[in-house]
Design a protein around this nucleic acid. Structure first.
Length: 824
DNA sequence: CCAGGGGCGTTTTTT
DNA sequence: ACGCCCCTGG
């Protein structure tokens, strides 16, 4: 187990010359092979410089849309093509799996060969890969479970309850975010104990909770998201010989989205790029590893070459520990570093860029950077103020239909918002308008209860000591094992110093009722049988993930219970379980030889953006955070209101307003051709409706760039006469003199201030049953008034009426639920 | 042990 | 408005 971190055998012994010249280091301008013109043609000078740079550290400051992925992929391809590096010597870290997949594809396309051997993955995937290999050293099972935030919360909730810590004001949310922050700072429970103020009872209690949490995860053989990074750092620090193996292997480390790295990730990068001492190099050589070609004059292996790409203007993850100093102080951290600035934008029109530049320039403390393009001004930005979230959504839907009729594909259109709850009105209107859409992220498939249940069965098989998983499935489906029984099992396990799972096997010794005992033993038997199926030692061979899951959901009764339940919602749940089985089938097919643990890992580490399917013919809905790194022909930024963007939670946090502004900036710069900004005058939350004000950021965009279809200055929430200045606040005070001019000045030819809302859109939904409509029918719509049906498409419950409304124009309506009736 | 009702907190963003 | 949690009565 000690020396298996070899690059693929065929690369051994023929490792290419590593050229590692820091600028000015003396032995520089030897005839180093340059990447062929093929890889630099068509690049602008700074891009070319970034591709061709050779040295210890390179920072690519890449403005939005400046072609950083292109630079990164060409840089990697160049290193391979010139034989300066083997694929196995490349480690590239991206933010999402999707970005990793894209990079892998593009590198492979450039090289005309597969990128096998390279590690191109997210921080978390790379760490899991390392940790599973080295698990034994860390005293962990190689099959350790990865706990998501919900799992952590469950554990913390139990700890708080067991300790009665809520009386001291501890909440699961508060504790989990604090623990997460500490782990991101590489402060584990013991480090925290050393610095904690033990005079403060709350601190003492928090430490106790942190310790319990650490202990419980350890005992369950589980890691949370933050552990994945931190434990890898600890692994490298505790085992220099292990670190040396990875440092020897990865000669080129490239990190994307560097502005969003937190301290632990920064420390990890440092670990990867440290040199290997002469001593350890000699040790590896004695172990039969080839190191000769890597050695420098000191007899050690120099640190890997590091390339980071980032843009501090797009730093939007401070809330989860991202430290912008990682990028701003890069040159100090890595002496000898070079910096390349990419400012030419290849994505957006000048109007969009001008708006973006103008907004972001309000953040002081930033390095000047000005995006420019040569593609011309393009269309103006379109603005719209709706009466309500539904009205805003209707605008978005109508505008999308207009774009679509003009030839834009749905998949090239995206709608962004600040918080997930904004999807509700959007979805309601989109469904009614028969607009094909997809919500990216949000409530994920894998977060559904029935899916987590089914997954817990798989986890219980893969990692039998995971008590959380076991307790989840203990009484799911209902088999009469209640909390009392659960506690009995747990204390039996504790007194006999056996695992929960073993306690289940010995259920007969607990003196429980016969029914309960039988139920526990039956479940234990199903799990044991399953474990045998995936035991690599099993002479009959290993069962595929899909067959295993089918066995589990069948034998446990989970599927059957849902299928035959009286609760109508359980029908969907049963279908979801079936969908999961289908997904495991896909997984088995696409990953021959992959194990159950591989499947569980993959599921644990999917990011919202990974779900995006470029070939889908649908409009994409997502949060501004998820949108980072993506681009669309047409972008709709919704809810550009005070308290939403900037979000009210951010306003009190230091740097919060600047971060929210960056979020707006990220949103704007996703748009290639068309940008729409919309807001509503009233916004519903928690059931009641309140007045919303235009976002302060709106006035940071020069007025001449925006074509207001309906400006905030033209209307107010009551349809009354009070003008709404942009810089008005709810309390009536102005945001200050000299900024903005309100929208009263905005040129909006042909539009008069609005006092009525003929198209006030409601959330009204109707069940029309099987209302029959044919072309020519006159109908009346609750919001749009009267109109004439021009066409009916689709079938059954998905029939869509195309209606020409007398006042509101053309719309598509889902007949089954639209608030319509047939007239004369 | 379980189903159903009432009460309450929730929503910032996510690997 | 919704979902979760706790409590009560079967």
């Amino acid at each position: 187990m000690s020396t298996l971190h070899e690059p693929a055998p065929e690369t051994e012994g023929t490792a290419p010359m590593i050229v590692h010249d820091a600028p000015g280091s003396g032995h520089g301008e030897r005839e180093r092979p340059k990447p062929s013109g093929r890889l630099t043609d068509g690049l602008n000078p700074p891009q070319k410089a970034a591709v061709e740079y050779r040295g210890p550290a390179l920072l690519i400051v890449a403005g939005a849309g400046s072609g950083k992925t292109r630079v990164l992929t060409h840089r990697i391809a160049g290193l391979i093509e010139t034989r300066e590096a083997w694929p196995s010597q490349i480690l590239a870290i991206t933010f999402t799996n999707k970005a990793a997949a894209e990079m892998r594809e593009r590198v492979a396309a450039l090289l005309g060969q597969a990128s096998d051997g390279m590690w191109i993955s997210t921080f978390h995937s790379a760490c899991v890969r390392i940790l599973r290999r080295e698990a034994q050293k860390m005293g962990l099972p190689a099959t350790f479970t990865i706990y998501d935030s919900a799992d952590s919360r469950t554990v913390i909730k139990r700890i708080i309850k067991a300790r009665d810590a809520d009386t001291l004001g501890f909440t699961p949310g508060g504790v989990s975010s604090r623990i997460s922050k500490l782990k991101n700072e590489l402060t584990d429970d013991e480090a925290f104990a050393r610095n904690a103020n033990m005079g403060d009872p709350k601190e003492v209690e928090f430490l106790a909770i942190y310790r319990d949490y650490t202990r419980i995860l350890r005992a369950a053989g589980a890691m949370d998201f933050d552990d994945l990074i931190a434990e890898t750092v600890y692994l490298f620090r505790a085992f220099p010989d292990v670190a040396a193996l990875y440092r020897r292997r990865f000669r080129h480390v490239l990190v994307d989205e560097y502005q969003d790295t937190n301290h632990a990730q920064y420390a990890l990068i440092r670990e990867f790029t440290e040199p290997v001492t002469a001593e350890l190099s000699a040790q590896m050589q004695r172990d039969g590893l080839h190191v000769e070609r890597l050695l420098d004059s000191t007899g050690g292996i120099p640190g890997a070459s590091l390339t980071v790409v980032g843009d501090s203007d797009q730093s939007i993850y401070a809330f989860r520990g991202a430290d912008i100093r990682n990028i701003t102080e890069f040159e100090r951290d890595f002496p000898g570093a070079s910096v390349v600035l990419l400012e030419q934008n290849y994505r957006s029109t000048q109007n969009i860029l001008s708006a973006a530049n103008s907004v972001i320039s309000n953040n002081f403390d930033r390095k000047a950077k000005n995006l420019f393009t040569t593609v011309g001004d393009g269309e103006k930005i379109v603005g719209y103020t709706g009466y309500s979230g539904h009205d805003e959504a209707q605008f978005v839907a109508d505008e999308i239909e207009t774009l679509h009729r003009a030839g834009m594909a749905y998949r090239d259109i995206a709608v962004f918002y600040r918080v997930n709850s904004q999807t509700r009105p959007l979805e309601e209107i989109f469904v009614r308008s028969a607009l094909p859409y997809r919500v990216v992220g949000g409530t994920k498939f894998y977060e559904r209860a029935e899916i987590k249940d089914a997954m817990a069965y798989l986890i219980a098989v893969a990692n039998p000591i995971d008590e959380l998983a076991l307790r989840r499935i203990l009484n799911t489906p209902k088999r009469g094992i209640g909390p009392a029984t659960e506690t009995a099992l747990q204390s039996f396990a504790e007194t006999n110093e056996i695992s929960f799972r073993e306690a289940m096997r010995s259920a007969g010794a607990l003196g429980l009722g016969p029914k309960v005992t039988t139920a526990i033993l039956a479940l234990a038997a199903v799990l044991d049988e399953s474990a045998a199926k995936v035991d690599p030692e099993n002479p009959a061979g290993v069962t595929s993930v899909s067959d295993l899951l089918t066995f589990l959901v069948t034998e446990s009764g989970l599927h059957e219970t849902l299928r035959t339940s009286r609760d109508p919602q359980d029908e969907t749940r049963a279908e979801n379980v079936e969908e999961l089985v289908a997904q495991t089938k896909d997984f088995d097919r696409e990953n021959p030889g992959a194990t159950l643990v591989d499947f569980l890992t993959q599921v644990s580490l999917v990011a919202a953006a990974d779900e995006l399917d470029d070939s889908s013919g649908t409009v994409s809905l997502m949060t501004l955070h998820t949108a980072k790194g993506l681009e669309y022909d047409a972008v709709f930024l919704t809810g550009i209101e005070e308290e939403l963007l900037p979000h009210k939670m951010s306003t009190n946090e230091p740097g919060g307003l600047a971060e929210e502004r960056r979020l707006f900036y990220v949103g704007i710069t996703r748009a290639k051709k068309r940008l729409h900004l919309s807001l509503a005058m009233t916004r519903s939350q928690f059931g009641d409706t309140s007045v919303a004000m235009p976002s302060r950021y709106l006035q940071e965009i020069p007025a001449e760039l925006i074509d207001w279809r309906q400006s905030p200055g033209m209307a107010n929430s009551r349809g009354g006469t009070q003008p709404r200045a942009l810089n008005a606040r709810r309390d009536g005070r102005s945001l200050g003199p000299g900024i903005g001019g309100g929208f009263r000045d905005a040129p909006t030819p042909g539009l008069k201030p609005k006092t009525e809302w003929p198209n006030r859109i409601t959330a009204e939904v109707r069940d029309n049953g099987d209302l029959e409509l044919v072309a020519g029918d006159r109908i009346r719509h609750a919001n749009f008034g009267d109109g004439r049906v021009t066409q009916v498409t689709g079938e059954g419950s998905k029939r869509v009426a195309h209606v020409q409304f007398d006042a509101a124009g053309p719309k598509k309506l889902l007949i089954k639920i639209a608030p319509i009736e047939k007239i004369a």
